[in-house]
Design a protein around this nucleic acid. Sequence first.
RNA 1: GGAGAGAUGCCGGAGUGGUCGAACGGGGCGGUCUCGAAAACCGUUGUGCCCGCAAGGGCACCGGGGGUUCGAAUCCCUUUCUCUCCGCCA
Length: 426
Amino acid sequence: MLTIQFIRDSKETILEGLKIKNFKQPELIDQLISKDNERRSLQVKTNELQAEMNRLSKEIGVLFKSGEAEKANKVKEQTTAIKKEVESLEKAFQDSSVDLNNLLVQIPNVPHPSVPPGNTEADNKLIREGGAMPELDENALPHWELGTKYRLIDFELGVKITGAGFPVFRGDGARLQRALISWFLEENTAAGYEEILPPLMVNEDSGFGTGQLPDKEGQMYHVTEDNLYLIPTAEVPVTNIYRDVILDAEELPIKNTAYTPCFRREAGSHGKDVRGLNRVHQFDKVEIVQIQHPSNSYAALDEMVKHVEKLIISLGLPYRIVQLCGGDLSFTSALTYDFEVYSAAQKRWLEVSSVSNFEAYQANRLKLRFREAGEKRPILAHTLNGSSLALPRIMAAVLENNQTPDGIKLPEVLHKYMGKGKEIIR
RNA sequence: GGAGAGAUGCCGGAGUGGUCGAACGGGGCGGUCUCGAAAACCGUUGUGCCCGCAAGGGCACCGGGGGUUCGAAUCCCUUUCUCUCCGCCA
């Protein structure tokens, strides 16, 4: 969430930005500010009375100690009325703070000035594209048929064991998954990211820290017995490593990468968009996360984009990078680039990575701060993350785009992970 | 799952009703000494919010929530988590 200080200082900028994001309730900003004024004046009054109470209590203590019980009891009488007043003021102050917080969590992040206006993905801005479109045979197969043909993916089996959206990978399919994961992790660590293998379930505090809770509760699987949530992305456990942490400026930037399965309920999804691996409830993803100095976060964002781009180029997939327009931007993001690869057999673009700068928005929820050398006050860090990369759609595109009458010719970078004789899946 | 112990500042650890935001030790930072370092010595060292141009001041926080009391780290209730032993187990 945004800090109340930032909202007070930069009201106009924020309103301007929220317009780009198609925020429907700009009036909340004024409500916030007047609620904050209310809270402040309540705090002044409450604190004054509390100070008075503290003073009297101390006096009573001293009087009792020196044996002047009578005097002490007299002062005690005074406290009764003040105590009542303090209690009701405290209550009012707390209510006011809760209200303020409830308003605050409804305000999305403010988009970066470069974010184009617009409502849907049609308004996203093409940044660049690359890679050659494959020329496929008339009767090229979509990946779900290739998965069956080469015995790589078994969707029916997943339905039997668990349900729709839980594919079973087997044989070379399972191996290809593992190859991709290994290769991604290797590339990420080579780029300076520390590898993390985090828990796959998180508690409520973590869900709140990265913004999944309270709003997007329905998107996560919830283990009610223990009140834990299955992670929808490694971003959640990895970013929460730094919850309630004050770093030294020299520790920045922090760069982490993690492979995890991701679990998403995707309630309401249906139709051809969710066919095969296009949208599933459990999938594998390698994530990159950075904790950055605010002055460097956009340079870091560019660096992350270049890094992800390099991976996709190495896989030989036709791709494009788009900058999300205001309406398509997530609640917490200030700037997001989406990576899409072209799936030749489905004849459509598939989103395979989303790289975002959250600026201080997540950090404020997480209480993730750092201290500049010599400075007393800690300040909020910037957080960024991106997929590097999400497996299912990469797998779909790799299978579809590389199909030949002789089998599926895998990208060279994966050969060493697939093992000898597995350069082509037959 | 059963039994017990515990949760205090950057870390260790004291504190069982008043002057305790918290002894003491370690660490960090600044200084003295030194060519420099070590040692020793001196000083300093939590977070948030509020008032204030500032200097400065106030309030809250000793796992979370609630209660008793003029006054709670300390007493009571509740909750979460951690550790030890037993059981189970990859």
